[in-house]
Design a protein around this nucleic acid. Structure first.
Length: 488
RNA sequence: GCUCCGAUGGUGUAGUCCGGCCAAGCAUUUCGGCCUUUCGAGCCGACGACCCGGGUCCGAAUCCCGGUCGGAGCACCA
């Protein structure tokens, strides 16, 4: 039947448009609910790179049900910015990520010490007092250091000695034994604890022996009952290291996934650079719109849904990729456009006189198709003065006609616009935005660090939020005289 | 140097596990056309890709081998 239709009556074949539904692949071994986690280090607020891990984990917990744990990994006191404890949960909330449980690793030190003692007692770990160089050189040559074969009792004594302050930073570490002959040098015996005397923002000097990320992650992944772990490809070797802890304790492994690395061209993400810039006043703060922080995108008026769409579409493949601001902007536009009001902003304004014009009442729709957004109305006197974009005005030759949108046609004559009727004569003519003479001074700050100044129409006085400034771009209007550029 | 990943248009992806419906889909960008009192959207159309070389096979984007290129790790960071 199908073939008859297609050969004899091809015109009856309705070719259905394939709708691409981007959805993430199913996870392996899902038995009922899942337990997943996000584990940012509290070095500062979240940036767009973090949003991928947050969204992916959130998507799966939403799909299967279960818990999404926010685990703040603050076991390196040198790398903590206290504002992160507050800001990370807030950033996630803004992203509409549903965190069901929050744990802070520095509050769990006792658990890590217990696990460390168990491993020492069972001969799976040792305390090493070599210098860093000696230790590393040994690994590269697959040679055991003298401490690797210490008796468990000796190790446990030294462990206690470290807690008691008998060693200075750098004088002793706790090492997990793996396989010195492992072909991958990255996986040979690894450091699980080191001494730090830097005061911890939450605990001051209560602790001096801190677990390294690989140790606390492995212990917590088990203790918190993680079923699936999704994180960046840069953790592939770390996963292998962590598996040793699971193996020694005969713990069941979660399912691991590693997505590819994303390069963010022209986006400033590095915490160290941002902090430096804030302290030397290059940047106004974490929400400076030149930055790639979620706070900055928020200030520019982005919809959190855009992050979700972008990362779901990117999937979980291990391929590295380049972040496309172009596509990101396009997705945001698609999400917000239908409910975004139009306003007139006149960059580089020139004040012109209109002659021969009767008093006029104009009604300008806030949206070309979504009439529920309403209109704004202006009453203009006879022969009014208005602002128009300088660029457009200068580019128009004397004698030519252009149209002030939703108002009237003007024939240019020097600094004068001669009224040439109110009705649209020819929609091919150039149509520009305008503002009554009482337009407000307005500045738009842009992510490239530049800004545009001009006049915004009086109705913007009480408007807040993202508007499409016609023929200019989307802007988050935050006051009657300032806005932040979202995108074109 | 060692270990491990990966390679589809300008960009982001689908397909690769289990070879054929893929002379490769979608999105974005660019360029046309229609429509609209901005832009965008919408609709129509155009340009544009399976890293290279072998092999297996009736048949390879998909499997195998060898290259090339790119990335990650080899921290008392996460």
């Amino acid at each position: 039947m199908d073939s008859i239709v297609s050969t004899e009556y091809p015109e009856f074949l309705v070719r259905e448009k394939k709708v691409q539904v981007h959805s993430l692949p199913e996870l392996r071994n899902v038995k009922g609910k899942v337990v997943m986690r996000m584990a940012p280090s509290p070095s500062g607020p979240l940036h767009i790179g973090h949003s991928r891990m947050a969204i992916l984990n959130d998507e799966y917990v939403k799909r299967y049900g279960g818990d999404l744990i926010l685990r703040i990994e603050d076991t390196n006191p040198s790398n903590i910015d206290p504002i992160a404890y507050e800001q990370i949960p807030e950033d996630l909330k803004w992203l509409e990520v549903n965190v069901t449980k929050t744990v802070i690793q520095s509050d769990r030190m006792g658990l890590y010490y217990n696990e460390a003692k168990t491993l020492l007692a069972n001969g799976y770990a040792y305390i090493c007092t070599c210098t860093s160089d000696q230790f590393k050189t040994g690994l590269m040559h697959s040679v055991a250091c003298p401490h690797r074969n210490s008796a468990p009792e000796t190790n446990l004594d030294q462990f206690q000695g470290i807690l008691d302050g008998k060693f200075k930073p750098g004088e002793a570490v706790l090492i997990i034994k793996t396989d010195l002959a492992h072909p991958n040098p990255a996986l040979r015996d690894w450091i699980a604890f080191r001494i730090s005397e830097v005061p911890h923002p939450r605990h001051g000097r209560d602790f001096r022996f801190y677990p390294m990320m690989n140790f606390s992650v492995a212990v917590d992944d088990r203790l918190l009952g993680l079923t699936h772990v999704i994180r960046g490809k840069d953790h592939i070797n770390n996963t292998e290291k962590q598996k040793y802890i699971f193996k020694y304790n005969k713990w069941k492994l979660p399912e691991y996934y590693h997505y590819g690395l994303v390069d963010f061209p022209n986006v400033i993400l590095k915490t160290s650079i941002i902090k430096k810039g804030i302290s030397n006043r290059t940047y106004s703060g974490w929400d400076d719109i030149r930055l790639g922080t979620l706070l900055a995108f928020r200030k520019r008026g982005f919809s959190p849904g855009t992050f979700r769409r972008y990362w779901v579409e990117s999937g979980m493949r291990e391929v590295d990729s380049e972040f496309s601001l172009e596509i990101f902007y396009s997705m945001n536009k698609e999400l917000i456009d239908m409910n975004t009001r139009r306003l007139f902003f006149i960059p580089d304004p020139v004040r012109i006189h209109i002659s021969d014009a009767p008093p006029t009442k104009v009604s300008v729709p806030y949206h070309p198709t979504n009439s529920s957004l309403g209109t704004r109305k202006y009453s203009l006197p006879k022969d009014p003065e208005v602002f128009v974009p300088g660029g457009d005005w200068k580019a128009t030759e004397d004698g030519h006609i252009l149209r002030l949108k939703d108002m009237c046609n003007l024939e240019k004559k020097g600094e004068l616009g001669i009224f040439r009727g109110a009705s649209l004569m020819d929609r091919k003519m150039k149509i520009i935005q305008w503002s009554p003479a009482d337009g407000l001074d307005f500045t738009v700050y842009k992510p490239d660090g530049t800004s545009d100044t001009g006049k915004i129409e009086p109705f913007a006085k009480d408007f807040r939020g993202v508007a499409q400034l016609e023929r200019y771009g989307y802007v988050n209007v935050t006051s009657s005289h300032v806005g932040y550029f979202t995108h074109k």
